[in-house]
Amino acid sequence: MQRVNMIMAESPGLITICLLGYLLSAECTVFLDHENANKILNRPKRYNSGKLEEFVQGNLERECMEEKCSFEEAREVFENTERTTEFWKQYVDGDQCESNPCLNGGSCKDDINSYECWCPFGFEGKNCELDVTCNIKNGRCEQFCKNSADNKVVCSCTEGYRLAENQKSCEPAVPFPCGRVSVSQTSKLTRAETVFPDVDYVNSTEAETILDNITQSTQSFNDFTRVVGGEDAKPGQFPWQVVLNGKVDAFCGGSIVNEKWIVTAAHCVETGVKITVVAGEHNIEETEHTEQKRNVIRIIPHHNYNAAINKYNHDIALLELDEPLVLNSYVTPICIADKEYTNIFLKFGSGYVSGWGRVFHKGRSALVLQYLRVPLVDRATCLRSTKFTIYNNMFCAGFHEGGRDSCQGDSGGPHVTEVEGTSFLTGIISWGEECAMKGKYGIYTKVSRYVNWIKEKTKLT
């Protein structure tokens, strides 16, 4: 034993070699072989497995989906700052455009905790909710729209109204504003409101030439003092309507412009014939205590009207009353817009006519005020429907199939267009061939041609 100890002390290297040989010859039971080890760690190889990531292109799944990435790591994937920024906006807080917040056709661009709407022409605001041009839906104005110097929408209202708090709607500024039905039992019968379409306001006024200088022999019209197929109006439903009495009662109609003036057809009036105007009328054979009678003290036909040349060209006249009318729910003026808007309103496509005229061709006159909704007829169809001249200051309205029309005794009465609950004068009943005849239409004086003249002559002093 002493000898062994001496050998170990003198030859430590020998001992180490012996131990190493023993270990190498022993069977290893701690580690699995290569094949079995792979069965336990069965993990798919990654895209760049075996390579240094710093030297390969980034992978979106590896960089940002398996674990949260930084902007720089995302930049490695896209290799483009702009594309990385677009991805980053949604990656950080989701897609803010998912709810489609942009209105009126706006395009949404996502941002971090926010979004941006790219608005089409005519709109602005956070969600493109603000109209900035009158060309689109009248700028959301209830009545009139004008573009300011910086191309912003400025709404306005006709006389007797003021802008509401929203700067879009119009509200009454006087007790009985024009064009409004205020009798409670008839307010439910107000005709369907007309909503502004998209309009090209630059070209809204037709490029028409008034044929002022045409000389033409007097034409022989049949029954051209021209509501057939209409309905009984309720008291106060058309408070701007008046009836004219002269040699015979209810020979023509008219509309209240203001307390002192009536507008009617020029062919209705004769110099030297006494005319009485009755406002607030409903049943011409009954006294309903809503009527107001006034005498006409002055007749002003349009300066281009000449019955000797043509009885229905420039067929418009103004009547001055001896005493002002007292405005109330049964006696209310009709609204008159400017030339541009009167023309736009007419193009809405349908209007209402009213009167006490004959209820059928050569038949009896109506006792109760009649009204009828009539569609506008395109000019080409209008011209083809008659052998008589249709001037540019006239328009056609009615039904091709016949059966409904204005008729004798309705002449001078109103053709009105309702705009968001307020009625505007767009025409004056003038003439036609018979009444409600198939293929024939009622012919009306186009008020847009005469609004400046009306307003100039009827100013209240």
Results as ranks from 00 to 15, higher is better:
N213Q: 09
P172Q: 07
E79A: 08
F360G: 12
K146I: 12
C28V: 04
R83G: 09
N5K: 13
P175E: 14
L244I: 08
H415P: 00
L103R: 09
E79Y: 05
R384P: 08
V195Q: 15
K68P: 05
S217G: 06
E124N: 10
L103T: 12
S255D: 01
I40S: 02
T81L: 10
C435M: 03
G439C: 05
I300F: 06
T29Y: 12
G409T: 07
Y161G: 01
N113F: 04
M437C: 07
N100I: 07
S423H: 15
Y352V: 07
E79T: 08
C252Y: 01
Y450V: 01
F399W: 15
A37Y: 02
T16V: 09
Q96F: 14
G351P: 03
G58E: 02
G409C: 11
G21S: 14
E418F: 08
A279S: 03
H361K: 14
C141A: 00
F348L: 08
G363A: 07
N147K: 12
L369S: 12
K455H: 12
Y305R: 09
S187D: 14
K387A: 10
F348T: 15
E116V: 13
Q2D: 11
L60P: 03
T186M: 14
P414V: 14
G125K: 03
E54G: 01
K51N: 14
W431R: 10
V257C: 02
E323L: 08
V368M: 12
K293R: 15
G246Y: 06
K457C: 09
N135E: 12
V278E: 03
K152N: 13
R75N: 15
F424E: 01
V263Q: 01
N48G: 02
K347A: 11
R226N: 15
N393Y: 05
Y444C: 03
G421P: 02
V4R: 11
N48W: 02
E76P: 02
I7Q: 14
D410S: 10
Q57W: 00
V374N: 02
A37Q: 03
F144S: 01
E456C: 06
P333K: 04
P333E: 02
T81Q: 13
D200P: 12
V359H: 14
Y161Q: 03
A250N: 13
T389R: 10
D405I: 14
H34Q: 09
V331A: 07
F348K: 08
D315T: 02
T386K: 07
K339S: 15
L319P: 00
F345I: 08
I454F: 00
R191H: 07
L19D: 02
I390R: 07
F176R: 05
S350A: 13
L20Q: 02
I454N: 01
I7W: 13
S114C: 08
S220E: 11
C382G: 02
P301S: 08
T276H: 07
E285T: 09
C134W: 03
Y330F: 13
G58I: 00
L318G: 00
N258V: 02
I17Q: 02
S448V: 03
N310D: 10
F224T: 15
Y450A: 01
M8D: 12
G409V: 08
E79N: 06
N42E: 06
V451R: 03
K274A: 09
G253Q: 11
C108V: 02
N452L: 05
V228R: 12
F395V: 02
E231G: 12
K457T: 15
K362M: 09
A317V: 04
T215E: 06
T209W: 09
G398M: 05
K68I: 07
G427K: 00
E27H: 08
G236I: 06
S187P: 14
D111C: 08
N5F: 13
N310W: 04
K339Q: 15
S114E: 14
G439R: 09
C170G: 01
E129C: 03
V56I: 12
Y305I: 02
M6I: 07
G21F: 13
H282T: 12
Y444T: 01
H303W: 07
K446Y: 02
N203P: 08
T215R: 07
D322A: 07
R384S: 10
F221Q: 09
V326E: 10
G427Y: 00
E98Q: 11
G58Q: 04
V269Y: 04
I429G: 13
G421W: 03
A250W: 07
S385M: 09
E35Q: 13
F196G: 15
T218I: 08
N393Q: 05
T158A: 10
I284F: 13
G94L: 13
L425I: 04
L327V: 07
V4W: 09
T381S: 05
T461M: 11
F71L: 06
L103E: 13
V56D: 01
Q219K: 12
E27T: 12
F123K: 11
T342K: 01
R294G: 02
I15Y: 11
G105W: 05
K45V: 04
F78A: 01
K45Q: 03
K109T: 13
G432V: 08
P414I: 15
F399S: 11
H282N: 12
R404S: 15
E53P: 00
T332Y: 05
Y312M: 09
V154I: 11
H415W: 03
G125M: 02
V248A: 08
I112C: 05
C128L: 02
C178R: 00
L244C: 02
G13T: 15
V181W: 08
E35D: 14
I316K: 01
G50S: 02
K126A: 14
E53Y: 00
N166K: 03
C128Y: 02
Q219D: 08
G122L: 05
Q2V: 11
K109H: 14
A250T: 10
C145D: 01
S365H: 13
G122F: 04
H302D: 02
L383T: 15
V263T: 03
E418D: 15
Y47R: 05
Q2H: 09
F123G: 04
G409K: 11
G246F: 05
G230K: 11
T225Q: 14
G160M: 03
Q241K: 05
E259P: 08
G236D: 04
C178V: 01
E286P: 07
A265L: 02
R404M: 05
W261L: 01
H415R: 00
V273S: 09
N452K: 11
E281D: 12
S156A: 11
T332S: 10
P12C: 15
R298T: 10
C108T: 02
N104Q: 05
V227P: 11
G94I: 12
N306Y: 05
D338R: 04
A279E: 00
L244M: 07
E434A: 14
G236A: 07
E116L: 13
L325P: 00
D322K: 04
T186K: 11
D405L: 15
G427D: 01
F123Q: 06
V296S: 03
L318R: 00
I275P: 05
F424A: 02
S148R: 07
S148L: 12
E456P: 03
H302L: 01
Y371C: 05
T287D: 14
Y115N: 04
K168P: 02
T290Y: 11
C69A: 00
S406R: 11
V277S: 01
S49Q: 10
L23S: 03
Q408T: 15
G254M: 00
V353Q: 04
S255G: 05
S217K: 07
